[in-house]
Write a protein that binds this DNA or RNA. Sequence first.
DNA 1: AGTATTTGTATCAGAAGGGGTTACAAACAA
DNA 2: TTGTTTGTAACCCCTTCTGATACAAATACT
Lengths: 141, 141
Amino acid sequence: MAANSQFSMAVHVLAMLARSKDENLKSDYLAASVNTNAVVVRRLLGQLNHANLVVSQTGANGGTRLARCPNEINLSEIYKAVNCGEVFALHAKSPSKDCPIGKNIEAVLGCIQREIDKGIAEKLTRYTLQNVFEMVEQGKA
Amino acid sequence: MAANSQFSMAVHVLAMLARSKDENLKSDYLAASVNTNAVVVRRLLGQLNHANLVVSQTGANGGTRLARCPNEINLSEIYKAVNCGEVFALHAKSPSKDCPIGKNIEAVLGCIQREIDKGIAEKLTRYTLQNVFEMVEQGKA
DNA sequence: AGTATTTGTATCAGAAGGGGTTACAAACAA
DNA sequence: TTGTTTGTAACCCCTTCTGATACAAATACT
C-alpha cells in the first residue's frame, strides 16, 4: 500500500506542538519541519482537531496548539485519530459461499483482525506524547 | 490504493490446503473459492512456497499442497511470508534535519514501529493453521 | 515421442488511495 | 478595512493492488 505515513506525520506535528507549549504554530512552519506541504499538514490537523487533540484558530496570529497536556495524550488516541485502516484487509471480493472454507473464513479473519488491533492499541497506550517528546529531545531512540 | 488483502487470501488458501490433506489442489480451484483469478493465487502461492509453507508441482496432475502439518504452521509465519509491509509508514520525505524534532523523530518512530510489529507477531504466533481451520469448520468466529 | 495439463512469470490495463499543489472562501487580529 | 491564517475543494501524479492474457517450462499419461 502506499504506505500511509499519516501517523508518523501526526506524531511529528504533535511533538512540535508539545515543544512550543501554548504558543500557536502555523501550518507553514510545521510543514517545513515535516518536509511537506502546508495543506497536507492542515488536512492532518483537521483530523487531530476532530479527535480533540488540537485546537486551531483562523486569522492573523492564528495557528494550532495542543488541546491537552502532552502527558494526557497517548499514542493510541493519535493512531485512532488518523484513520490508518486495518492491519490487513479482508478479501476484496467476498469468497465463494459454496465452499465450506470460503463460507466462514471472513468471520474468523475478522476476529483475528480485532485481536491484533487490540494488541496494537495496548502497545501504543503505553506511550504518551510527553514520552515521545522526551525521547526525541534526548536523541534517545 | 487498494488495501492489501494478501494475508487474508493466504490464510484462506492455506486453510483449503489443510482441508485437502496431501492431495494437490490446483490454482483454478483455489481461485474459485477465493473468488479471484488463478494467477493471483499462483503469485500468492509463490510467496508461500518461498517461505517453505507449501510445495507445488507443475504439469498434469500438478498443484499445491502444504509443506508441513497444519499444526506446525502458525499465522505469524504466514504474515511474514506475504510481505504486508509495516503497520504505518515512516515519513515519505525525510523531515528537516534543521529542526530538533525533525532530526530525531524518525529514530523514535522506528523504535515504536518495531515494538508494534513484535506485538503483532506475538499475537499471531498463538494461532496455528490447524486452529484457524477448526474455527472455520465449526463456523465459530 | 507426443499431447494435454498445470505451474511460473512477464506484461499490461484499470481501480483506488496518498500526497503535492493551486485556488479561494471564511474567520480573525490590528 | 486590510492582511493573515485556516479550512476545503479540485486536480494531478505516482505507487500499489488486482485482474487478465500470454506463453515457456515442467510433468503425467498414452
